[in-house]
Design a protein around this nucleic acid. Structure first.
Length: 670
DNA sequence: TTTACACTAAACAACG
DNA sequence: ACGTTGTTTAGTGTAA
């Protein structure tokens, strides 16, 4: 994003002293000198901050941070510090960074002013009045600089607002409002540094030591390094811009209902318990292991009472606490961003591994593409939802899966190339009507699905032919009408016509149940139901068998045959599409596995009536499927919904028991 | 392993 | 001659 120009001129950062001295040497003495000095300190601190960010990006310990959104452009950060003008600094630094720096510089300048005061009062100055006048002028210059810095910061925010980078917040105060979107610019090390910097404002000796240990200009600046450690750095309220507003702002997120102005982060339990501020006598979020957990404090407190006293005294609602709180907000923000990124990474990993913890349908797209791939010659966009919903119908008993075609067997996968050569898949579909004939209800329920989805129906040719014939008004059909019925009812049979038509003819001739009758219009085919039932195995009259098959259908390895077909088609198509999946095995098997899971969950939704949730019915989405048909085959598609669908929908949906009894042909359709 | 069934492919013939 | 319809055979795979 912003690091694209990181390779541009990068110079080794010279020492801070060079920058300061070279500039300060050009300055005059007196107030102007001090003003320049303060400006250079501010710039120096900002440069140092940028350098820290740049180095933090390359530090081995910050590999995670590398991926965090770095809003400070590296190309800018890597520039020579002298090259950075205040305007550039304004553009580089985000408002919170600027503000932190400004506050820090303000604190430093205050310290310097006080130091100078002390030095002047204790010095052997020749003229106190001159000194005081000089001091007054310097203070005036200092105040002017404060105003300038504040204006700079405000201008920066306004610029960002104009650029749309910062949402306008009319209710928020100008310079004190720190847009949350700008917080993540800092890496944890920066935040830690900021903490140190902010904490360095405090007057304690260790805080000053911390400040001296910083990489800020205090190390190189003569004036700051000469600070007496006893210098008071407590920032008076008026010394900070909009100090009162700062209080208001920070009060909005600290303890809104706290009546104790001095203990914004700690209440004595009088309030209703909240998640964060709920304290017991023995615990406090800011107190642990005998010391204050306030960032940068670590003051030892023997007990809670002492801690409370310490908290009230040292961490009252003032500018310092406010600034520290802001920094803590940045820390939290950064962590949240990091958490979001890690979560996103986890999601991507799980998606890649097909674990799909909570995502709606990550594998829909591959399936979708697959189904519209080789087998369909991309005629069919397959399932609009991408998900080949199992055509498990409400009234359809779970198809005995063993009959189902073992569509995902290795043999099927293995022989698919052969099948693909010949058009129709090699999937041996044992009849789903072997034990029971759910074809009527199945087709009635999933009529639209099969009509639009390029899924091979889990029925034998014989059963389909029989169904087609029985569906006809006269219970007789010509061969061409049977063909039309196939193409009309099943998108799958809109291609590879030679193969399946040959199979239809073969079945008509082979099976005795199909009787050819000479008619005035020519030869028609009828169904000899007795013969048909003869060839059928003993049906599932007994519930044990049914239950067994149902249970097996609920099993992991067994699927609804239709869904198996769908999966098989999709997977096989996917396997044969090198553009969609180069290594065929793992991903496809994973996908199938996922499909299994989905089906299992789907089947588990079968209610007590044996029907599935309607949301899982293919009909729910088949309306959006548009299958481009072969021109020679689509003569029937302009017809209204099939008779079967009309009839069966107008009647009570056949139940499982009805399917079991459908050996009587008249019952099936009437 | 055997058997039955289903599917695919193919050859062939008859017919319009 | 060609396409359609119908029959038959062979091979293969699956499941019981």
């Amino acid at each position: 994003m912003m690091v694209e120009s990181a390779s541009e001129t990068i110079r080794t950062a010279p020492s801070n002293q060079n920058g300061v001295s070279s500039l300060s040497s050009q300055s005059d003495g007196g107030g102007v000198d001090l003003l320049h000095l303060q400006q250079q300190q501010a710039l120096q601190a900002a440069r140092q901050f940028l350098l820290q960010q740049a180095s933090g990006l390359n530090s081995p310990g910050s590999t995670e941070i590398k991926q965090s959104p770095v809003q400070v452009p590296v190309s800018m950060a890597m520039m020579s510090p002298q090259m950075i003008t205040p305007q550039q600094m304004q553009q580089i630094l985000s408002p919170p960074q600027l503000q932190a720096l400004l506050q820090q510089q303000q604190a430093l300048m205050l310290q310097q002013v006080k130091l100078r005061q002390n030095a002047l009062t204790n010095s052997t100055s020749l003229c106190l009045c001159c000194d005081q006048q000089q001091l007054g002028s310097k203070q005036l210059a200092f105040q002017q600089q404060l105003i300038q810095m504040q204006q700079l910061q405000q201008q920066h925010i306004l610029n960002l607002q104009r650029q749309g980078l910062v949402p306008l917040q009319p209710t928020q105060d100008d310079s004190n409002f720190i847009p949350s979107s700008l917080f993540p610019a800092m890496c944890p090390s920066d935040l830690q540094q900021l903490w140190k910097e902010v904490s360095g404002v405090q007057s304690s000796d260790e805080a000053l030591k911390q400040a001296e240990g910083l990489d800020l200009s205090t190390n190189s600046s003569n004036s700051t390094s000469a600070f007496p450690k006893a210098a008071s750095a407590h920032i008076p309220l008026h010394s900070l811009p909009n100090g009162q507003r700062l209080f208001e702002w920070i009060s909005s997120f600290t303890k809104a209902d706290s009546g104790d102005d001095h203990v914004p982060l700690y209440s004595k339990g009088s309030q209703p318990p909240s998640s964060h501020h709920e304290e017991h006598a023995s615990s406090h979020p800011l107190y642990g292991h005998g010391e204050c957990k306030w960032p940068g404090c670590e003051a030892l407190c023997e007990d809670m009472g002492q801690f409370i006293k310490h908290l009230n005294n040292e961490h009252a609602l003032d500018d310092r606490s406010t600034a520290q709180c802001r920094v803590q907000m940045q820390v939290v923000q950064q962590l949240e961003i990091q958490l979001a990124k890690e979560s996103e990474r986890l999601q991507a990993m799980m998606t890649h591994l097909h674990m799909r913890p909570s995502e709606p349908k990550p594998f829909n797209q591959p399936l979708n593409l697959a189904s519209s791939g080789s087998l369909l010659k991309r005629e069919c966009d397959a399932y609009p939802e991408g998900l080949p919903h199992p055509p498990t119908s409400a009234a359809t008993p779970i198809t005995p899966l063993r009959q189902g075609p073992s569509v995902i067997s290795s043999s099927s996968l293995h022989t698919h190339s052969h099948s693909h050569t010949h058009g129709v898949g090699p999937i041996r579909r044992r009849n789903s009507d072997k034990y029971c004939t759910p074809i009527a209800s199945e087709l009635a329920q999933n009529c639209e699905f099969y009509k639009n989805a390029d899924v091979r129906p889990p029925f034998t040719y014989a059963s389909l032919i029989r169904h087609a014939i029985l569906e006809s008004p006269d219970r007789q059909l010509t061969l061409n009408e049977i063909y039309n019925w196939f193409t009309r009812k099943f998108a799958y049979f809109r291609r590879n016509t030679a193969t399946w038509k040959n199979a239809v003819r073969h079945n008509l001739s082979l099976h005795k149940c199909f009787v050819r009758v000479e008619n005035v219009k020519g030869a028609v085919w009828t169904v000899d139901e007795v013969e048909y039932q003869k060839r059928r195995p003993p049906k599932m009259t007994g519930s044990p068998t049914l239950v067994k098959n149902m249970i097996s259908g609920l099993g992991f390895g067994s699927l609804n045959a239709s869904y198996q077909a769908a999966l098989a088609e999709s997977s096989l198509s996917l396997l044969n599409n090198p553009h969609l999946m180069s290594p065929p095995t793992a991903a496809s098997l994973n996908m199938l596995h996922v499909g299994h899971d989905d089906v299992s969950s789907t089947v588990e939704q079968v209610n007590s009536n044996g029907s599935c949730s309607p949301t899982l019915s293919p009909q729910q989405y088949s309306h959006a499927v548009h299958v481009k048909e072969e021109p020679t085959e689509l003569e029937e598609d302009s017809r209204p919904v099939s008779l079967l669908a009309n009839v069966t929908h107008s009647l009570p949906l056949p139940s499982d028991e009805r399917d079991l009894e459908e050996d009587l042909p008249m019952e099936e359709l009437e």
